[in-house]
Simulated scan of single mutants.
Amino acid sequence: MRIGISIGDVRGPASPADLVAQVRTAAELGYDTVWSSQAFGWDALTSLAVAGTLVPGIPLGTAVVPVPQRHPLVLASQALSVQAATGNRLTLGVGAGVAMMVTSMYGLPADRPAARMREYLTVLGPLLRGESVAHEGELITASGQVAVPGAEPPEVLVAALGPAMLRVAGELAGGTVTWMTGPRTLAAHIVPAITRAAESAGRPAPRVVAGLPVCVTDDEAGVRERIAEQFGLAGRVPEYRAVLDREGVAGPQDVAVVGDEKGVARQLARLADAGVTDYLASPFGTAEEQERTVRAVAALI
């Protein structure tokens, strides 16, 4: 199981210098990938371009970019720009977005997310390959081409939790990215469903990138209480509530990877046993807690 690490907003407010420092530390410690999430601050792709151009070598990924507010022509241009700027190190993770946010913040429709994602990917794929598209579909219209010299098409992953989206991810993408999804659900639901879909489409075995907060600490109970406070909203959002219910837990605090060095190692081994190909470590806590966590998790790579 590869181990990557998140950078930027999910770990707290970050300046450009902070982003570069986080990526440089990850590269020096041997992390397999650095991942940037789209939240309410840094643009995920821009943050990778900023830091990735200054830190060579380490693979980069988005986990994830919501697509409702980015037309396929726009996203293809952004992704290929990052590819050209960073020497083609990008994995492009995309998602349908949290429905409540898509409708309330952007005034966009959030119904039929799997159907929208399927159509979106049928347009995005050719654009990433530099091909011209002329698509007038039920949900998307796109006409044009994107050409960025030196850019190769990135691998695309799809945030998928439910059966319909997992079929889309398995059939049309290189795998999935999950968030707040525990090992029981990964082993019994996520991995089997997306693997069946990929096999039926004649595609290679999919990547399964499992993102979870992590904190190496001697105060497990206290940290889990803080995670419950910070990520409590996820426990009430239908998309995440569904996988938490599958796991049989109350909230994000119960699936987070928390404990001392040996406890965290055991929890990561359980993810690997579940069929996870990539663990996305999202360090949680104070600067001191994150420092201990970053180095302890790196020791497991």
Results as ranks from 00 to 15, higher is better:
residue 83 Q to N: 04
residue 83 Q to D: 01
residue 85 A to L: 15
residue 85 A to R: 04
residue 86 T to N: 07
residue 90 L to M: 12
residue 91 T to P: 11
residue 91 T to A: 13
residue 91 T to L: 14
residue 91 T to Q: 13
residue 91 T to G: 11
residue 91 T to V: 14
residue 92 L to D: 07
residue 92 L to T: 03
residue 93 G to H: 05
residue 93 G to Q: 07
residue 94 V to C: 03
residue 95 G to P: 12
residue 96 A to Y: 08
residue 97 G to P: 09
residue 97 G to Y: 03
residue 99 A to F: 02
residue 105 M to E: 10
residue 108 L to R: 02
residue 110 A to L: 02
residue 111 D to L: 07
residue 111 D to F: 12
residue 111 D to R: 11
residue 115 A to S: 14
residue 116 R to L: 03
residue 116 R to P: 13
residue 117 M to C: 09
residue 118 R to I: 07
residue 118 R to A: 15
residue 122 T to C: 09
residue 123 V to K: 02
residue 123 V to N: 05
residue 124 L to Q: 09
residue 124 L to K: 09
residue 125 G to Q: 11
residue 125 G to W: 10
residue 125 G to M: 10
residue 127 L to I: 06
residue 127 L to P: 02
residue 128 L to C: 12
residue 128 L to A: 10
residue 130 G to V: 00
residue 131 E to C: 12
residue 133 V to G: 06
residue 133 V to D: 05
residue 133 V to H: 01
residue 134 A to C: 12
residue 135 H to W: 15
residue 136 E to P: 13
residue 136 E to T: 15
residue 139 L to D: 12
residue 139 L to R: 13
residue 140 I to Y: 14
residue 142 A to V: 08
residue 142 A to K: 06
residue 143 S to N: 13
residue 144 G to D: 03
residue 146 V to P: 11
residue 146 V to I: 10
residue 146 V to Q: 06
residue 147 A to F: 13
residue 148 V to S: 03
residue 150 G to F: 06
residue 151 A to R: 05
residue 151 A to C: 07
residue 159 A to Y: 07
residue 159 A to L: 08
residue 161 L to A: 10
residue 164 A to W: 00
residue 164 A to M: 06
residue 165 M to F: 06
residue 165 M to C: 04
residue 168 V to N: 03
residue 168 V to A: 05
residue 169 A to M: 04
residue 170 G to P: 09
residue 175 G to M: 00
residue 176 T to R: 08
residue 178 T to W: 04
